[in-house]
Design a protein around this nucleic acid. Structure first.
Lengths: 133, 133
DNA sequence: GTGACCATGACGTCGCGTCACAGTAG
DNA sequence: ACTACTGTGACGCGACGTCATGGTCA
């Protein structure tokens, strides 16, 4: 099986996503993203949707969710894509709303941390001026 | 020795700083902040300057420096406070400038991460709207 | 003397980095 | 058949969390 017809080896995926090979393998270990195929020799073969999932994970990282939580969210999104209208779909939407809520909370905390960090950097800058020359 | 005359037990310090007791002990393990005294029975006794150092560490945390780097910076600040004018002082100032530089870099990365996080949260919000009712 | 607080191990967790060693792809 | 790439362990690390067990403080 060649890597040319939509199947990417892990190294190419690492380049495209900016994640390390080790990280991608770790994500598989914890069940976050399992490549949809293997070569005869055992090489992981990734298709576009796999790469997309990895890209989503990379975007989520700054929020500080655990890998377990990210897996939950990815599964949830998949389920929402497949679910028919009905009570189960409303349950899924509720779970998504909960995610959204906690994501917003994490954004708030990130803003606080940024402010703290900016304040600290400024303070060092001021010290630098104090001790000038 | 009583905890009333400027000597605080670790629990009181934890409350005041918002750091966990375990964290404060860990900081001591790595030589970041060593309490300036112990009671006869072995209790850690912290004075105001110890608490101040801990507060500085807490402010630094969002920048993502390692505990070793934080120790270096705290030592550097102490040294700058004590140093006379002269060539050694200029060396210290240069090291501080390097810290400032890397702090600013970390602030930039934090800003990027915040933007990514905000984008992701928004995206979930949009999905929520898509699947409304 | 009785709670509430504290000390010292020591092992656990999370998200990977970093070998070592061997097999695969092209 | 060469060589870059990939596979699977398995140990290491940083910054703590979490017991367990026993001493201390007011």
């Amino acid at each position: 099986m060649s890597a040319a017809d939509g199947h990417l080896h892990i190294g190419a995926v690492a380049e495209r996503t900016g994640l390390s090979i080790r990280t991608i393998r770790h994500y598989e270990d914890v069940g976050l993203i399992v490549p949809s195929a293997r070569s005869d020799g055992g090489f992981r073969l990734y298709v576009t949707s796999d790469v997309d999932r990895l890209a989503v994970v990379k975007r989520m990282k700054p929020l500080g969710f655990s890998l377990d939580e990210m897996r939950d969210l990815l599964d949830l999104l998949d389920a929402l894509g497949r679910a028919q209208d009905g009570p189960e779909r409303r349950l899924l939407r509720d779970r998504l709303a909960a995610f959204h809520h906690s994501a917003q909370e994490r954004v708030r905390r990130l803003r606080d941390e940024l402010a703290t960090a900016e304040g600290f950097a400024e303070q060092i800058g001021a010290l630098l001026v104090t001790h000038e020359r």
